[in-house]
Every structure is written in structure tokens, then in C-alpha cells.
Amino acid sequence: MPEFLYLVSTAIKYKHLNNLSSIKVKYDINDPQNIRGASILGYISNKEFYITVKKVISYIDYYNVGPNYISTKINYKGSDKVVKIQYQLIIFLFSKFISNDKIPNSLFLNISYSNPISNSIPIYNREGTKNHLNNKYNGESLVKYLKASKNCQSNSAYVKKLSKKITKGCKSKLQKAKAIFNWVRDNVVYTSYYNTKYGAKNALINRKGNCVDQSHALISLYRASKIPARYVHGYCKFVSGHWYGHVWTQVLVGKVWYVADASNYELNGFGHVNNWKYNSYSLYGKYSRLNF
């Protein structure tokens, strides 16, 4: 679906420029992972629409990911307001716009956040695509992936209470695993420094940490919920183009070790990484505990 969004965005751009050249299809664009937006009521002008189109193209060209949302100016009763149009509404809007034989001067939008369009996330994986960061469980003993350690205080009363609060209402292990990941990603803000500084408990209390402490936080909450989890250490090329040593998490649900990297609020989701190039990283190892 993000490939379709890029294609239709480029088609609109070409139509605006009266460019009759062929459009080169861009493959392997990743799905957004933290979609959010607001209810939309008002008119989007022709000019603002093309600004939005260019924002989408630029975002995908830089990150190779569909945008969670795009900030756009909407006019209602003579007053302009900046709103966040979420991913699926962007697809709907662009499709509606390009379906016109003549480019309209403006489009009226009245879509509430409760609209089914707002809550249906279009995801389409082309045949043959594979996530190399999720691995099959090989049957090894899981005891060490459930134990507390010096920096992974899964036996702490604070961590246990928080884990229980986050997973309240979850009916399956997968729901719990996703809820814990989303909470850490959205609440423990990434901060740059080397190695362990806080450990799990203090990272959760302070609501901040680097990739190591975010991993401590994630794994402690998983283990407190009796879900096996482990550390992964590697050398990664980030979307900025720079290479860095990096730590992330894998959590076992069923027969799959799912990747859970909370280091980027905008780009990463449960089972998916978009802030570094997962096809060209160097793996150092997978561990039940870290010594740094």
C-alpha cells in the first residue's frame, strides 16, 4: 500500500506539472508503524494539496516508509487550521483527488476520527517479502530469557505492577507483547549516550533511555509478564546514513522471536524496524543479559 501511495503521489505531481513522462515504480517501501491523526472538517485548497503531495514524496524518498501522518492546512468558515491527516486518509484523499478529470480548486473533507476509514489500516505485503529480524524459535530452553538480572529488574514490585497495568485487558500473549512494546516506544524517550546508565527500573521511572536502557525496560516488562525476551546486539546503518553500534529486543510469541526496537517513536512498530537498514546490518550476538 505505501508503494501505491508513492505512485499516486508522483502521478498527481506529474499531472500538476503537465509532465507526460513514465513514472518509475518504487518497490519495497515499508508500512508506517505509529499511525495517528485527527478528525478533518473543511476545505483543502489546490495549493495546499500540492504542498501535501510534495511532503509525502519527500518523506518516502528519505525514510523509505509511508508517513504516519502529514500536517496540512484546512480552511473552515474562513479560518485556517493545521491538522494531522493520517496515513489511510492521505491515501483516500489522493485517490479522490486524482479521480477527477479536472483538477478542482479545492476539496471538502468531513471525516471523523471514528470513521471506519480512520480505523482501517491498509497493509499489503508483496509476495516474497521477508522480515529478517523475526526468527523461528529453535526449541532451546527459555529459562534464562525469563530471569531477572542486575539491569533487568523484572522481579521488582514497580516493574511487575507497571507490566500488569500495561497489559490489562489483553486476551493473548501477542496482545500483551504489542501493548508492552507500544508503551515503551511511546513513553520511554530515546536519549543518546553509551551503554547502560539507568537500568530497567530507573529508565521506566525516568521515562528515558538509550537503546540499551530501552531494551532493559522492554525485557523487564516482558519477563515480568512471563514472556521470554532477549537482547540483540549489532552494528547498524541508520536512515541518516551513519553506522552505529545498536541494541534491540526480541520477544518470543508462539514459535517466533519478534523484533521489538523502541528506539524510534515515528518509524518502528512491533515486529518491524524502519529507522535502520535491516538488510545490511552486522549481528554481534543474542543474549539473555548484557554486560555493558
Score class of each variant (00 low, 15 high):
L5P: 02
Y6L: 11
L7H: 07
V8L: 11
S9V: 03
T10R: 04
T10P: 01
T10Y: 00
T10S: 06
K24N: 11
V25G: 12
I29A: 05
I29L: 09
P32K: 10
Q33L: 05
N34A: 11
I35K: 02
G37C: 05
L41D: 15
G42E: 03
N46S: 15
K47G: 06
F49M: 07
F49E: 00
Y50S: 10
V53L: 06
K54P: 01
K54I: 07
K55Y: 09
K55R: 14
V56K: 04
Y62S: 12
N64A: 06
N64H: 10
T72G: 04
T72I: 13
Y76D: 08
V83S: 02
V83Y: 03
Q86D: 10
L107R: 01
L109C: 08
I111L: 12
I111C: 04
I111S: 03
S118W: 08
S120Q: 09
P122F: 01
I123Y: 06
E127F: 15
T129L: 11
N135R: 14
N135T: 15
Y137R: 04
N138S: 14
S141N: 15
V143N: 12
K144F: 10
Y145L: 04
K150G: 06
N151F: 14
N151D: 14
Q153V: 04
A157Y: 10
K161L: 15
K161P: 07
K161G: 11
L162C: 12
I166K: 02
T167G: 12
K168Q: 10
G169D: 09
Q175V: 09
K176S: 11
K178E: 14
I180P: 03
F181T: 01
N182V: 14
R185L: 06
N187H: 13
N187I: 09
T191N: 00
Y194S: 14
K197I: 01
A203L: 04
A203W: 03
N206M: 13
R207L: 12
D213T: 01
Q214S: 00
S215P: 02
S215H: 02
L218H: 03
L218P: 05
I219L: 10
S220K: 09
A224M: 04
S225K: 04
S225F: 03
K226T: 06
Y231P: 00
Y231F: 12
G234Y: 07
V239C: 15
V239L: 15
H242P: 00
W243K: 07
G245T: 13
V247D: 00
T249A: 11
V256Q: 09
W257S: 06
A260G: 05
A260H: 06
D261C: 00
N264R: 04
Y278L: 02
N279C: 08
S282L: 15
S282G: 11
L283P: 03
K286Q: 14
R289F: 01
R289H: 02
